[in-house]
Structures are given as C-alpha cells and as structure tokens.
Design a protein around this nucleic acid. Structure first.
Length: 206
DNA sequence: ACATTAAGTGATT
DNA sequence: AATCACTTAATGT
C-alpha cells in the first residue's frame, strides 16, 4: 500500500481490517464518520442521498483509493452526506480519523491524501457533467459501464427498479431505455440481470 | 398451486 | 420525460 515502511507499519498497527460482501452498506447519509475506509480489494459505490431517501449514483472507489468525502467530512466534523454500498466484495482498512492529522508528518501520506482529493474532484466533475448535460440514456449507459468496470463482471445483477432508484428516475423509463440499448446491441437484458457489451462509446443515435 | 416480485405496455399530461 | 393503471411473466415457498 505505502512505500514508506514506517507509514505502512502505522497503517497496519492502527487500522482494522474489515471485509464486507457485495451489496452491503458501509454507511448511510447522516452517519457520523469515525473511520476512514481505504479500499484494499474490491470496490465501493458512492451515492448521494437526500432527506427523503432519494438517491443518486456518484462514483466508485477502487482498490488503493479512499473516500475523499470522508476526508473532508471529518476534517470539518460533519456527518456523511453520502451512502456507500459495496460493489464488489471488499476488504477495507478502517483508519480511525484521529490519524488523518498525525500522519501528515509523512510526506507520502500528504501526497496520498492530496492525490485522492484531486482524483475524486475530477471524477465528481465528470459525473456532474454527465448528469447536468446528458440525456438519461447517456447517463444510463455511463452508469452501466462504470459498474461493469468496478466489478470486472460484464453481467450486472440488478433490477430495473434498482437502477431507476440510483439514477432517480421512474422504472418504466429505465426499462424502455434498456430496450433501446438492447436494440443497439449494447446490452442484453434478463430478469434481474443486465449483460453489458463492452466496446466503443455511445456515438450516434436518435 | 399460490403469492410475490420484476418487467412490459399504453394512455395521459 | 414523468406518472398511472394495468398486464404478463418469472421466481420463490
């Protein structure tokens, strides 16, 4: 994980290793943040969540990465505003937040925190762009692609309803858009599954 | 066989 | 693009 043996040693000393199965919820909006999760294996899916329980997919956290939001959240001692769901079975290092600051003495840690912040920021911008300027069919395709990339599995076990929830859109619309994608050979759908055909981008249409 | 859940459809705004 | 009302199909017990 870290090159600096001292930092690595610190990590192994204070972090609690935690394993969670796909689909498990690591945290929900409103939860207090006591630990910073660093993904060792697997991946997490991060969703925005509002007071009424509506959701919105934001991005994934992949191995070696940590949640930039928890970093800023605990720095300002606020509660989480996002929900974290396990995408692919994960192993997490749970680092008590107190070490966030004390570890700043390690240059490598500073760089790591900085890098993840920058990376997340870019990803966030990207998803904002998708949400703000793209039509739902493009958002859907983007969503499917990201999830496939995050799981390494081309076949997603998801219902239309679940997708609809995460894109905050009615199920019927998702069903119809999935059919369009199927007609274009980009996916094939089964009950509770979507088989995503990887390959070229979205290109042309309607 | 029955109940439940997922998906498909058409009409309406 | 959203919402409704309803049908049909798959799946679990």
């Amino acid at each position: 994980m870290f090159v600096d043996p001292k930092l690595q040693q610190e990590l192994e000393r204070v972090a609690v290793l935690r394993k969670l199965p796909a689909g498990a919820e690591l945290m929900r909006a409103g939860d207090a943040i006591t630990h910073i999760p660093i993904v060792r294996k697997g991946s997490l899916r991060i969703l925005a969540q509002d007071a009424e329980g509506r959701e919105r997919f934001l991005y994934h956290i992949m191995p070696g990465e940590t949640c930039a939001l928890s970093l800023t959240c605990c720095a300002s001692k606020r509660t989480s505003s996002v929900m974290a769901v396990v995408e692919e079975d994960v192993e997490l290092w749970m680092v008590p937040i107190q070490y966030l600051e004390t570890w700043m003495d390690f240059p490598e840690w500073r760089r790591y925190v900085n890098d993840t912040q920058a990376q997340r920021f870019n990803e966030l911008l990207e998803t904002i762009e998708v949400i703000a300027f793209n039509k739902l069919d493009e958002q859907l395709w983007n969503y499917l692609l990201k999830r496939v990339q995050a799981t390494g599995e081309p076949i997603l076990r998801v219902t239309h309803q679940e997708i609809a929830n995460e894109l905050d859109s009615p199920r019927e619309v998702i069903t119809r858009l999935l059919h369009q994608l199927q007609a274009r050979g980009r996916v094939s759908i089964g009950r509770g599954t979507v088989d995503v055909k990887m390959g070229a981008g979205m290109a042309a249409g309607s």
